[in-house]
């Protein structure tokens, strides 16, 4: 009598390793579902992963098309993440004082073989300004700011301003000629703030008797720079804003922004 033998299909070493790996206790404790090849697992992968959970499970076909979103919002977010990472690394080497700021940057350039962290950070920042503009442009051209997404557009505008401010505050940190004069030109505007700048219209009206309330030592520009010129106080202020204040603010708003994209019905499309 002939015996029937069931022959398992031949598996390559890699496949066997993969099968073994995805059944270990460690793996199954991290990923609580099989590979996303079935509909059920495609739902589970989105729902059980905190990062992927930013997304819905399913999405309009037009919304995943590059021709519709240009992926500009996603790229802005990615650049922000990459800037956070490279910025963190730069913070290990950079001290925001008149004594060290410039020389630390020189050190990064001279003593780190093949170092490109500063470049990645600077060009990433320029690129982010551009991608955020283009993202805004595409949102406008698809009319995606119309109801119910009005508020998310407003959140976006604030993030656009924060992006520019992040870039602006970072511009000062290398403490070279390029840096302080760009910031000087930029911050000089603040002294012309109506009422609050000492060369602004209306500032001379704010006085107690003979005593003017607004002068170079207490106007809007002084608040920005911590002094009457771009000096050490300005450097510290810009550093703290650049590394802590503004990133925190924009991160919170990004959370709101993404949340609202979902709550407003996902990527826009014709009704």
């Amino acid at each position: 009598m002939a015996e029937t033998k069931t022959v398992a299909p031949k598996q390559s070493g890699l496949e066997r390793f993969w099968n073994w790996l995805t059944e270990t206790q460690a793996w199954t404790s991290i990923f609580r579902h099989g590979r996303p090849t079935t509909d059920r697992n495609r739902v589970l992968v989105m729902l059980s992963n905190v990062f992927l959970h930013l997304h819905p499970v399913r999405i309009r076909k037009s919304g995943v098309k590059l021709r519709y979103t240009w992926c500009m919002g996603g790229m802005s977010f990615f650049l922000f993440l990459s800037l956070t990472l490279t910025g963190l690394l730069l913070m290990f080497y950079y001290r925001p004082t008149l004594e060290y700021a410039y020389t630390d940057i020189v050190g990064l350039r001279e003593h780190v073989p093949l170092g490109i962290m500063r470049e990645m950070h600077r060009w990433g920042a320029h690129a982010m300004v551009i991608t955020v503009w283009l993202h805004m442009f595409r949102v406008f051209m698809t009319g995606s700011y119309k109801p119910p997404r009005e508020f998310n557009w407003s959140v976006g505008v604030v993030m656009l301003v924060l992006t520019l401010l992040l870039s602006f505050t970072g511009y000062l940190l290398p403490w070279d000629q390029l840096a302080i004069w760009a910031i000087t030109v930029g911050s000089n505007m603040a002294r012309a703030t109506p009422f609050l700048g000492h060369e602004g219209p209306g500032a001379s009206l704010l006085r107690l008797g003979d005593v003017p309330l607004i002068h170079a030592q207490d106007d809007a520009r002084f608040a920005l720079l911590g002094g009457t010129f771009v000096g050490e106080a300005a450097l510290l202020r810009f550093y703290v804003l650049h590394c802590v204040g503004l990133p925190l603010g924009i991160a919170v708003l990004m959370a709101v922004h993404f949340w609202r994209v979902r709550k407003d019905g996902g990527i826009s499309g014709p009704l």
């Binding site: 996303p36 509909d39 992968v45 997304h55 999405i59 309009r60 037009s62 995943v64």
Partner: peptide, 15 residues
């Protein structure tokens, strides 16, 4: 965009 209103899976299409 109206013709593309049907839904697709985020994994793999979007991710």
């Amino acid at each position: 965009e109206k013709a593309e209103a049907d839904r697709v899976w985020v994994w793999p299409d979007l991710v």
